[in-house]
Each structure stands twice: as C-alpha cells, then as structure tokens.
Design a binder for these strands. Structure first.
Lengths: 134, 134
DNA sequence: AGTGAAGTTGACGTGAACGTAAGGGATACG
DNA sequence: CGTATCCCTTACGTTCACGTCAACTTCACT
C-alpha cells in the first residue's frame, strides 16, 4: 500500500483551508508533513490530525489546547509518567467537552422553545389580519 | 416588585467578568444597562442577556453571532417580515448548534476510546515492570 | 473642604489566528 | 532558454476580544 501523499494545494481543496493556515499549523506543531526537497507532502496521518484540529476549533478549543489533545492521540513511545499526565489531561478535556455538550443541549432546547413561541406569533399574525391591510 | 439593579462591580463579581468586558459588550450592543447619571445599572434583562453571551462564547460563537441571536430572543414589537426573518435565522443557528452537538458527541466518544486504550497501556506498564527498575 | 472608593470615557497595547504581499527557488513545457 | 506554475520563507498587517493605563467625575464620609 503506497502511502498516498497530498500536496499543500490538494489539502487546501480537500479541507477548505488556505496554504497559510497549513503552514501556520505546522509552525504551531499541529502538523508535520514530510518534505520532498523543500515542498510539503501530507500523509494519511496529517490528514487525520487536520480533521481533529478543525473539529476542535468548532468546539472553541484554542490551537494550543488542540495541540495537547493531539499529543495524546499519538502517545508515541513515552514513559509511564508522561502517559499518566496525558491521561489526566484528557480526563479534564473530556469533562470540558461533556459540560459543553450539556450546556449546548440546554441552549438548543431554549432556542427551540423560543422558536415555537415565534411560530405561534407568526401564525396568529398571518391568519387574523391585525393592522396592515393586504 | 422593585426591579433589582446591580452595579457594574456586582455584575463582575456575580458573573466573573471584568468591567472592561461589560463596557465592551455594551459598545457591541450586546447589553444596554440603564444610566443613573453616568453610572450603569443592570436589570434582570441584562443579566439574562449576559448569561446567554457567556454561554454562546463557550460554544465558539463570535460576539457578532451572539448579538444576532440575542436580537431574536427579544423580538420586541417588530413587523411580521422581521419576525419571519428572525425565525429563519434562528432555524439556521439551531441547525448549527445541533450539528455542533453531534460532532461533539463523536469527539467525546473518540476521546473516551482513546482514554480506554490509554488506561490499558498504563495498567500493563504498572503491573509488569518493563524497562525501569523501581 | 478633603479624601477615598467606585465609576466613567478615551486611547493604546496584546495574544491568537490567520491574511497578505514581497522576493526567491524548483520543475515542466514549448 | 524563457516563462509559467507551484511552492517556499520572511515579515508586516488585520480582526477579535478584551487588558491596561491615564485623566477625569461623582458620591459617601468625615
């Protein structure tokens, strides 16, 4: 299976980001594409990481937060202490995410109610003509 | 029932924000406290709005996004067209929020799995001594 | 009238997350 | 060999969401 590489442009098209963004993420150590001479080539691993970065951003995590999360996704050869530390960190993050989802659920219900009320208002205004004639 | 006002400092203490933040939100038309002379006094309405602002921020919405959301929370005396427009807007936001929650659910499950795997690694490393002596 | 605490308006500073040129290499094609 | 097309680095500019500091009022006391 011949590792299928993508150029920076192909990445941009595939994930709807700019080259600047990919280079920026690399500078922040979120990505580390291989080099063919001076050019960047992105592997399957980088694509997976980018997906996680973009997802994390939608949750409101900072790039630094995301970097730490990513670092525990490939706990490549570390010692026990580091793994345990990473595990603790992940636990906190998980707590954050769960709290966030719970809040989001509440907000969704709120907005739904508000919209139901809005629907009624609209219905009453469209059926019984109140002020303006048609 | 005598509308219970809060000073800016009381607001800051209650919601853990700085005065600068409250004034900034006011400049962005997210809040509009009444004035007693030159000083700001915050009503129940402002407190509710602030809560929504802080919640929205945790979801990764920009202040401008939040302002639009707030504007449909108090659809105070508008015409039908405006209400309908607001309703459409709310529908889009609601879609965003639901999508966001779904993604968050996936991410949570992902992280949970990753952590389970991490737990196993830790367990195996703590029971059978591998490299380092104790 | 003096002093201090709390509040006000500017105005400039800051960190995060990129945008936007400016100028230079490498590779392919006619 | 020219030039067209990507790509690269360097570096300064920008937007958002405030932080920070300066220079006043305003109010409550004493």
């Amino acid at each position: 299976m011949p590792e299928h590489y993508l150029t920076i442009r192909q990445m941009c098209d595939a994930y709807d980001v700019t080259p600047r963004t990919l280079r920026f993420y690399e500078a922040k150590e979120l990505l580390s594409p291989v080099r063919q001479g001076t050019r960047r080539l992105y592997t399957r691993r980088e694509r997976a990481r980018l997906k996680l970065v973009l997802r994390g951003k939608r949750f409101g995590f900072s790039l630094e937060d995301i970097r730490q999360l990513l670092d525990l996704y490939d706990t490549s050869g570390q010692n026990l202490a580091q793994i345990q530390r990473a595990h603790e960190l992940a636990k906190e993050r998980l707590g954050d995410m769960i709290r966030q989802r719970d809040e989001l659920t509440v907000a969704i219900d709120d907005l739904r109610q508000q919209m139901d009320w809005g629907s009624e208002v609209i219905a009453s205004l469209t059926s019984t003509s109140t002020s303006a004639a048609e």
